[in-house]
Amino acid sequence: MRNFYLIAKKELNSYFSSPVAYVVITIFLVVTGYYFYNLLASFSTLSFQASTNPAIAKQQNLLNITETVVRPLFGNISMIMLLMMPLLTMRLFSEEKKSGTIELLLTYPVTDMEVIIGKFIACFVVFLLMLLLTATFPALLIFLGEPEIGPTITGYIGLILTGAAFISLGIFTSSLTENQIIAATLSFGVLILFFMMGTSVSLMGPTIGNIMVHISLIGHLEGFAKGIVDTTDIIYYFLFIILFNFLTLRVLESKKWRG
């Protein structure tokens, strides 16, 4: 237990002793804030038009702030996370490999598992902080209008699970190489493929299409944004996280048999 804590604390310190965490968090907030502004502004234009045009006013779902602002906002945040998270995870193992500190770390009496989980926790804390700051958007909505609280909360649960999945993948790609750019590129690639998979379902046969829907990251997030908490989705994320942490463990262990 103590080793998890010590490694996580050390990693957290190094996130915040360099500009990395500050820059990533700032840019993340600027971009998500911009999206939020756009959604909100178009919603207010729409409401304004509805007051004069009864045809628009009849389309109830358009004038639902949860449907037109909150739900798309979660989709946008997850896309921006896809671009930002690899930048947070890329250094976790690559840097240690490049500078050689991994040699010392792995000759200390810690298990590989403790190292991986410690780093995971540190990155997860940075991510939670980043996500927590976006809570100002729904807070503002609550202040201005009447969004549904339920879907907002489940949406955040979905984002937290998605973020944890991104981190586990990012740590895995970081363990593969001593080059941070390669680590980040690999996680961008894999994450985008996981996202895109859902879009090509119509091109595939029903069986393969169905499998792809279930593997794709995006399908599982949608439910949460709608306010649906499905155990299938939760299990999916947990399996994703466990799988990539397990693969990272194998990569660290591979030094034992690789020539």
């Binding site: 002793s17 050689g100 500190t101 000759t107």
Partner: peptide, 27 residues
């Protein structure tokens, strides 16, 4: 054991005392 590798890899973004406290804890 205490090990000093050849190229002395250290976490350069840490203070000496913090680094040693971290290592002592881990050990």
């Amino acid at each position: 054991i205490g090990y000093l590798p050849e190229n002395v890899p250290l976490y350069r973004d840490m203070k000496v005392v913090d680094y040693l406290t971290f290592v002592a804890g881990i050990k």
